[in-house]
Design a protein around this nucleic acid. Structure first.
Lengths: 316, 316
DNA sequence: TATCCTTACGGAATTCGTAAGCATG
DNA sequence: CATGCTTACGAATTCCGTAAGGATA
């Protein structure tokens, strides 16, 4: 038994049981992976993969239990490396942040600027994607931390911590009928075409929910993941924009009228997520604390520790 | 990085930083261990062992963090094997039970007899020792389960479950002055020499505690780990015997008079312990349930999962 | 027939044991 | 000077890539 075998098995599962894909992803030969997996199965005395002839079609029951254990082992192997780096080169390394456009564009700049001052030797990388991709990247270890407003708290192996709350705003061009209103209502907004975020982005579920609760079904003519795109189309007169309040800049956005909409849509909570069981570098804690000052190292560690160790993948 | 390196490091720590001992225990050459550990340290970029010249004197701070992780990895590696065995040969294997004399002699026989009927192909081995050895064996993985009345609930990585409760009895020879009493008191017992269990065995702490609470300090003339030995010396007139009630057999022990002492000494709880995070074979659950019927598989799993994942060895 | 896993085989890298070296208590 | 870690080196094993084979959808 060796670590390569575990990596091969994990990757094969991640690549939907396609061994050829797995070999490619691991930059090695496909027959090598095949052989190592066979030998691993022989050593354990059980098959991990159900085969139809020569194709892998599913995981066997022992295979499902083994996968959970293998994931934990490989996570801990990563942790060994991180401990080493943390002591050998505490102020250098790499920090990968998975996040959505809105966070990257509006919430993170000041945090990242401050972080770079303190840790100039840390290479930062931003993985941008939709909230479920953010969750996936953190779960798989491709990103160290995830920042998003949605879908981070549905995973057992993800520790999602509230970072800050925010509300939406409504923007319209100055010549729009709504621009003359003093205060807006959901009904008033729903009377016009709406431009807002794509499904599952930036509090979109709260927007839909608020309208649905009042029996309204607004005509959403355009969606984007990107506040700037939304504002641009609102300026063009495509419709009423609903965006995160932080995305409105009175200086820049002079050709838009903005209404705070905190009373119309529920409050949103942006969360920071880390993989449960992952060893976090000192600078990772520093980044999280800089992003959300109340998320001190101790608080994060508590949250990571505080729960049951149930693992849905293994019946045990 | 490979698994051997992790085994070498763990064993070296277990052998009090004596690398020569570790190599011997792992049936390999000492220079091989030395080299692998060096290479492992180089790969991580940190020293694990503090050296004075060429001797290992302590763990470095990163070393302490690493050890915790390494222990978890190697535990999970064992778990992989056990999953394999559980599926490949569900009804055969080996079950090692660490326990004390009293349990082995009085509580376990019926359980083991029943177990052998259900699982004739499982090799059983009893590791007999004092309660802290029992704890140590389970913690290190040398035993699968531990059964004892004391000192099992002081370890974070040990899950100790109450199995049954019991009380002490007092035995005296028929010609002893106490034999004529109707009921005994601690004061009456303390007036005579006492023969009972060795330190930390079979509820001894409760015996000492009960006397101490009354300001009594009985003259304990002989201690043994073994009820049969105690009874033998009581028969010889060495003193008053205090033993576990189960150890008195009215048939066999006709030359002794026995008083129940449940009112004199606190109730004792015998516990079953397993290593937290260990994968337990089906027959291990069966054994536990047969020993203590209320400890169903589900209950055991709950107890193993239900706690914080804090690890005292790693600051993280 | 294209995809995909397995088998076969040879070269390269790793691992491990023996022997000798050297520092500490 | 005995104990105990390190260095050196050679043999054995393991690992891994290429090429060919065979089964499935």
């Amino acid at each position: 038994m060796n670590l390569q075998q575990l990596r091969y098995v994990r990757e094969t599962v991640r690549r939907k049981l396609n061994l050829t894909d797995a070999a490619r992803a691991l930059h090695t030969s496909q027959p090598g992976v095949s052989k190592q997996i066979r030998e691993f199965e022989e050593e354990l005395g059980v098959d991990i993969f159900e085969r139809h002839g020569r194709r892998f079609v599913s995981l066997t029951p022992p295979g499902q239990e083994l996968i959970g254990i293998i994931d934990r082992i490989l996570l801990e192997i990563d942790n060994l490396r991180r401990v080493g780096e943390n002591y050998a080169a505490g102020d250098s390394g790499r920090l990968t942040i998975a996040t959505t456009h809105t966070q990257a564009r509006y919430a993170l700049p000041r945090v990242i600027a401050a972080f770079r001052e303190h840790y100039p030797k840390v290479r930062l990388s931003l993985q941008q994607g939709n909230p479920s991709a953010v969750a996936r990247w953190v779960l798989s270890g491709e990103a160290d931390i995830g920042i998003a407003t949605e879908s981070l708290d549905h995973f057992d192996d993800l520790v999602a911590l509230p970072a800050y709350t925010w509300t939406h705003s409504v923007v319209v061009p100055p010549d729009h009928p709504l621009a003359r209103e003093k205060a807006l209502t959901l009904e008033a907004i729903a009377a016009y075409p709406v431009v807002t975020y794509s499904k599952e982005f930036t509090g979109r579920s709260h927007i839909d929910g608020a309208f649905a609760d009042r029996g309204l079904s607004p005509d959403i003519v355009l969606t984007a993941i990107d506040s700037d795109v939304i504002k641009t189309y609102v300026e063009l007169g495509l419709g009423v924009g609903i965006i995160a309040s932080v995305a409105f800049d009175p200086e820049r956005d002079r050709q838009l009228k903005c209404f705070g909409a905190s009373g119309l849509f529920p409050i949103n909570t942006t969360r920071v997520a880390v993989r449960r069981g992952a060893y976090l570098r000192d600078f990772t804690f520093a980044f999280i604390e800089s992003f959300a000052p109340e998320l001190l190292r101790e608080r994060v560690l508590e949250a990571m520790a505080d729960r049951q160790m149930t693992d849905p993948t293994s019946p045990q």
